[in-house]
Design a protein around this nucleic acid. Sequence first.
DNA 1: AATGAATGAGTGTTCATTCAT
DNA 2: TATGAATGAACACTCATTCAT
Lengths: 196, 196, 196, 196
Amino acid sequence: MLRSDKQTPKRQKEIIDAAAAVFAAKGFHGASTRDIAERLGIQQAGVYYYFKSKEEALVEVCRIGVEEFYDRARDIAAKAQSPADKITSAVAAHLLPFHHMPDYVEVFHNERRYLSPKLRQPVTDLAQKYEAVLEKMFREGLENQTFRADLDCRVATLALLGLCNSVLQWYRGGSKNNIDDIARKYAQIIVSGVTR
Amino acid sequence: MLRSDKQTPKRQKEIIDAAAAVFAAKGFHGASTRDIAERLGIQQAGVYYYFKSKEEALVEVCRIGVEEFYDRARDIAAKAQSPADKITSAVAAHLLPFHHMPDYVEVFHNERRYLSPKLRQPVTDLAQKYEAVLEKMFREGLENQTFRADLDCRVATLALLGLCNSVLQWYRGGSKNNIDDIARKYAQIIVSGVTR
Amino acid sequence: MLRSDKQTPKRQKEIIDAAAAVFAAKGFHGASTRDIAERLGIQQAGVYYYFKSKEEALVEVCRIGVEEFYDRARDIAAKAQSPADKITSAVAAHLLPFHHMPDYVEVFHNERRYLSPKLRQPVTDLAQKYEAVLEKMFREGLENQTFRADLDCRVATLALLGLCNSVLQWYRGGSKNNIDDIARKYAQIIVSGVTR
Amino acid sequence: MLRSDKQTPKRQKEIIDAAAAVFAAKGFHGASTRDIAERLGIQQAGVYYYFKSKEEALVEVCRIGVEEFYDRARDIAAKAQSPADKITSAVAAHLLPFHHMPDYVEVFHNERRYLSPKLRQPVTDLAQKYEAVLEKMFREGLENQTFRADLDCRVATLALLGLCNSVLQWYRGGSKNNIDDIARKYAQIIVSGVTR
DNA sequence: AATGAATGAGTGTTCATTCAT
DNA sequence: TATGAATGAACACTCATTCAT
C-alpha cells in the first residue's frame, strides 16, 4: 500500500514502474532498494517516501500484475461465444499484458512466492478467481460436447496457463503483431492439437 | 566444478543435493550458504571445502538439472516411432525428473538466469541442444504429413516446453502415477487438442 | 575518491585521519574497517558511507601523504639558493611532514604497495615527479661544480630519500625542535659526509 | 622454532624460504598459509608439520634475516682498519644480503613489527647489538679525530642504516656488480658527502 | 611427511531501514 | 519531496588452525 493517497498519481506510477522493472530484471532478492532509487534518479532513502518496505512494493507490483488477467477474462467469459472461441480469446487476452506490461507480469509470476503469506493471500485469491473463470470455459465446452468427453478440465486449465505463461521466458520486447501471432498459434494447439 | 573429483562421491552428492534443495526453496539470492550448511549439519565455512563459491554450486546444480533432459530426449529421438508417439514419449520423459529430482529441475529453470554469462553458457548450450532434438521431432511429423502443414515447429517446441515446465509450479511431491497421468493428458492436448 | 566532495569537509577529514592512523599502526592488511569505525565511534558499516572500499581509503591516505612532499620541494627548487642549500632545505622540508602528519607519510611509504596497480599509478606518478625535482637539485650542483664530478645524481637522490625516510622508523611523536635537529645533521652528512 | 630438529635440513630450508618469499611479496598479514603451501606444492595443512603457527614462521625468517648482519659486522669491527675503511666495509657488508637473501632481509625489515613482543624481543636484541657494533665504529673515528668533532654518532649510525636499508625499496634482482657499485657510492656519501 | 575435512572467528561489504532535517 | 548520515543485521568468503588418518 502506498504511503499516501495524495501523491500525484503520475509520480506514484513511476515509482512502482521502477520497482517492477528492477524486480523483473534481478529478482526480488537480487534487487536492492538502491537499484530502484537509481532508476528513479533519487537517493536510496527516497524510495521510502513512496512505500514503507521493499515487500510492500513487491505486493503492489504483483497486485497490478494479476488484476489485468482477471478483469479481461471475466469480460470474455460473459460474451456469447462458443467455448472454443472463448478459449482462443482468453489466450489472446492472456498474452496481451506480456506486451504492454511485461515487468509486472513477470514479477507476479516469478517473485510473488517471496511474499509473506499474509501479503501473498490477496494476490493468490485473485489468481485463483482467474483460474476459475478459465476452468469454467472448459467445462462449458464439455457440457456443450464441443470438447472431448475425457477432458480433465482442471488439467486443461493449468495447461493453458502454463503454455501461455511460458511465453514470458523468451518473449521480450517483440512487436504487437508478434504476440497476436503467437496467441493464434498457441490457441490452435490447445484447441486442435498439432495433428492434421 | 567441485574442488576435487576424487572426494568420496557420496558426500559430494549430499552437498550438492543440499544446495539444490535450498536454492529451489528460497531462490539463489534468497538462499544463504548458511542455509546450505545447516541442512548438512556443518558450519557455514565447511561448504567452501566443497565448492569455491555460491555461484559454482548453482552452476553445478543447473548442469545436473539440464543433463537429464538432453540425455533422455536423444534416446527417444533415436527410436523407430511415429512422430506423435515420440512427442508423447518426450513429454513423459520431460516430466519424469520433476518427480525424482525436482530441486535440480526447479533450480535449472528459475535460477540459471542469475549465473554470470560465462558460467551460464555451457548450461544454455545443453538446453539448446535439447530444444533442437525436440524441434526435430515436430519437423519429422511435418515431413511425414502426420502434423498439420501450417504447424510452426519452433513455436510448437516452445509450447511443449512451456506446457511441461509449468507443471513445476504446482506439482510437488505427488506420486509417480500422478506424474504419468499428467504426462498422458498433456501429450494428448498437444497432439490432439481439447476438441472432440 | 570520497563519495561526495560536498560533505562537511570536517567530518570527511576525521574519517580519513582515522583510516591513516589505523593503517599506520597495523598495516593495511592488519587493519580492519572495524578498527577505523571504532576510532570514529561509529558502527563498522558507517565507514562505507564515506569511502566505498578499504582500498579507496588507502589510496586517499597515500595521495594526501605524497602531495605534501611534491608541493614543498617544487617551491624550494624554484628559489635562488645554492644547490647545497637547496639540498639542506629539501631535507628539512622532507622531514617536516614526519612531524605533523606522520600517519599519512608512514602509510604512503609502507602500504602503498598493497594498492592495485590502477589505484597505485597516480600516487606513484606524483612520487616520481618529486624524485625528479630532487634529482635536478643534485644536477645543478654538478654543473655548478659545487658537487664532486663523479657524483651519481640518481644514486644521490635515492640516498637522500632513503636517509630521510628511515627517520620514520624511529621518530614518533618527537618535538619539532627534534626534527629540525635531525634535519640539520642529516643534511650535513649528505652534503659534507662524516669526515672532518 | 621448527617442530622437530630431525627433519632433513634441506626440506626445512625450503619451507622457510617459501615463507620468506611469500611474506616479502605480500606482507605478513597479506600472506596466507595457503600461499606458502602453494609455493611448496603441498596442501595448506601441510605447512603445520613444519611450524606450529604463522607467527613462528615469521620469527624464524626474521631471525635468519638479522643474524647475517650482526655476524658480518662483528668480523669487520675486529679488523685492524681505519674507522673510515670500516664504515666502507660495513656498508658493503650490509648490502650483501640484499643480493643473496633479499626476502629474509625485507621481511626482517618490514614485517618484524607484527611479531608479538615476546617473539620480537630476541630479534630486536640482535638488531640492537648490530647497531651498537656500527655505532662503535663511528665513535672510534671520533676519538681518532678522523671524523668531525661535532658528529652525533647515534644519528650517524641511524643514517647509515637508513641509507643502506632504503636500497631494499628499489633494488631487486640486480647483479652482484651492481650492489657493490651502490655500496661504494653510498659509503662515499657517508664518509665524504656529495660536495667536492 | 603429509592430507582431507572441518571449525570458529573474522573479513570486507551490502542491505533494508530509520530519522532528523 | 526528498537527502545525509547512520545503524544493525546479514552476507559471501577467507583464515589460521586442528586432528584423525
